[in-house]
């Protein structure tokens, strides 16, 4: 690749990752609004169950560890990308994907058992806030997994191109960011809910 082209790619990388970072900051504010709502409504149980009645800490801990590990493997994938090691890259992305899917499965089964027990979002303001906050995070995870599938597809088809490199960089930011948000969901919703 010629030098001007390389400089252009570098600038494109910088511009895109800055833009994506700023988007993540705006997403933080979105989550902050949901957190604030949860904090205001967490005691409004309207005769339904309270946080300590329904949350199971071991399950939340499992989810946390899975997501943390997937954040770590995602980092390893980005490291493999730096060495242009396609095979390692795909392996680590695959591990990240499987961990992401298991996280989502556990979350959905938690939702499912709550709804079956009659504790859906319709039961109280507390449950509305809980489902929306955790569900929004889950929705982000779903989008991330879909994105990852597309990236792996492109990797198989076109190999490591500057474009897919940029996409992976952004995906890495997204995935680490989702892990960060989850730390606060784990702490504020689950730990503090059970502790209070």
């Amino acid at each position: 690749m010629s030098t001007p082209r390389l400089i252009e790619q570098k600038f494109l990388d910088y511009k895109t990752s800055s833009g994506f970072w700023l988007y993540l900051m705006t997403d933080c504010v979105l989550f902050a609004s949901l957190f604030a709502t949860y904090a205001v409504l967490h005691a409004a149980i309207a005769g339904g169950p309270s946080a300590s009645d329904i949350f199971e800490l071991p399950m939340a801990l499992t989810e946390t560890i899975i997501l943390l590990t997937s954040s770590f493997t995602c980092g390893l994938a980005l490291l493999a990308l730096r060495h242009n090691n396609l095979k390692q890259l795909i392996v680590w992305l695959g591990v990240t994907y499987i961990l992401g899917v298991s996280f989502l499965t556990i979350e959905l089964s938690e939702f499912g058992s709550l709804i079956q027990a009659g504790h859906s979002w319709q039961q109280s303001a507390f449950l509305s806030a809980f489902f929306t906050l955790v569900g929004t995070h889950g929705l982000h995870i779903t989008v991330g997994l879909l994105w990852l599938l597309v990236i792996v597809g492109v990797l198989f088809k076109r190999g490591i191109t500057p474009k897919v490199k940029r996409q992976l960089m952004l995906f890495g930011l997204f995935w680490h960011f989702l892990d960060l948000v989850w730390i606060f969901i784990f702490t504020v919703v689950y730990l503090m809910g059970v502790a209070a």
Partner: peptide
């Protein structure tokens, strides 16, 4: 983003029956 979140919650109240801003069930 605050507007997006707030409108979403109002919309959830109106479509799937959550209780963020209703005057019953703790909203």
């Amino acid at each position: 983003p605050i507007l997006t979140a707030t409108l979403s919650m109002l919309s959830l109240d109106r479509t799937i029956g959550t209780h963020f801003f209703t005057s019953e069930m703790g909203g």
